[in-house]
Structure formats: structure tokens, C-alpha cells
Simulated scan of single mutants.
Amino acid sequence: MYAAEVTKSVRKPTNLSLDSALLKEAKALGINISRSAEVGIAEAVKLHKQEKWLKQNAKALASSNAFVEANGLPLAQHRQF
């Protein structure tokens, strides 16, 4: 799903420094270096955003968890499981 989104974006040439042995092996295996780097960077961005969101919302999450601990889940009586 994400790979399809990546192909629609505007590309910008860039220089990267990569481990030469890893680069050689990837080329020998027919791996598209640019796409693989892009996927890896996209994953790193996603993880960074998740961590940032969790840090920014830590107080709200703690408050919500404390409420549930003290009072139980809202509407728990309506749960089917």
C-alpha cells in the first residue's frame, strides 16, 4: 500500500553514504537501492512521529489510564464480550 503512494511522489536526487559491502551485495541481489532507502527512511520517519506523539500525549494517556483504573471502562455494561 505505501509503496504505491511513494511512486506517485516527486523524486529529488540525493547523495547517500552507504556501507560499500552492503551496497555491493544489494546490487548483486538486484535490489533497487533508491526504493529500499526510501522505504527505510519512510519507516524511520513513521517511528519517529509515533515516538513524538506518545511523548506529547503521555499526560493524556496516563490520565485516561488512571480514570479507567479507578472507574472501569465507560459503557462496560454494554460490552458483548
Rank of each mutant, 00 (worst) to 15 (best):
V39N: 05
Q77K: 11
K55A: 14
A70N: 11
L29A: 12
N57L: 03
R11C: 04
A21Q: 08
G30M: 00
V45R: 06
T14R: 08
V39I: 15
I31E: 01
L73G: 01
P74D: 02
E51Q: 14
G30P: 00
K12H: 14
L18T: 00
N32A: 08
A42I: 07
T14V: 12
K49A: 14
E69T: 12
V45L: 11
L23N: 01
E38A: 10
V45K: 05
A66E: 11
A66M: 07
N15Y: 08
A21D: 11
N71S: 06
L61F: 09
R79P: 00
T14A: 10
V45A: 05
F81K: 14
F81T: 10
H78D: 12
A44H: 05
G40W: 01
A21V: 07
L18W: 03
L75N: 13
A4R: 13
L75T: 05
L54Y: 08
Q50A: 13
K52W: 03
H48M: 11
L16E: 07
M1E: 13
E5P: 04
L54C: 04
L22H: 04
F81N: 13
E51H: 12
Q56E: 15
A44I: 04
L23F: 02
K55I: 12
I31D: 00
F81R: 14
S36F: 04
F81E: 11
N57W: 03
N15S: 13
L18H: 01
K27E: 09
L16N: 08
A60T: 15
E43D: 14
A42T: 09
K55D: 12
A76M: 01
G72D: 01
L54H: 09
L22N: 06
E69V: 09
A26P: 00
L23E: 02
W53S: 07
K24I: 05
F67Y: 13
R79A: 07
A44E: 03
I31P: 00
K49S: 10
V39K: 06
D19T: 02
L47C: 09
L54I: 07
R11L: 07
K24V: 05
L29T: 04
A26Q: 05
Q56W: 03
F81H: 12
I31A: 00
K55T: 13
E43Y: 15
R35P: 00
N15H: 10
S20R: 08
V6Y: 09
A42Y: 09
A37K: 03
M1F: 10
L16Q: 12
N65Q: 15
R11I: 05
N15G: 07
Q56V: 06
L54S: 06
F81G: 14
S9V: 13
A21W: 02
A62F: 05
K59I: 09
K59T: 11
E38V: 09
L22Q: 06
A28V: 01
L75V: 05
Q56G: 03
R11Y: 04
V6F: 09
G30W: 00
A42M: 10
T14Q: 08
S64N: 08
D19G: 00
A28T: 04
A28P: 01
H78S: 10
N32H: 07
K46F: 12
A3D: 14
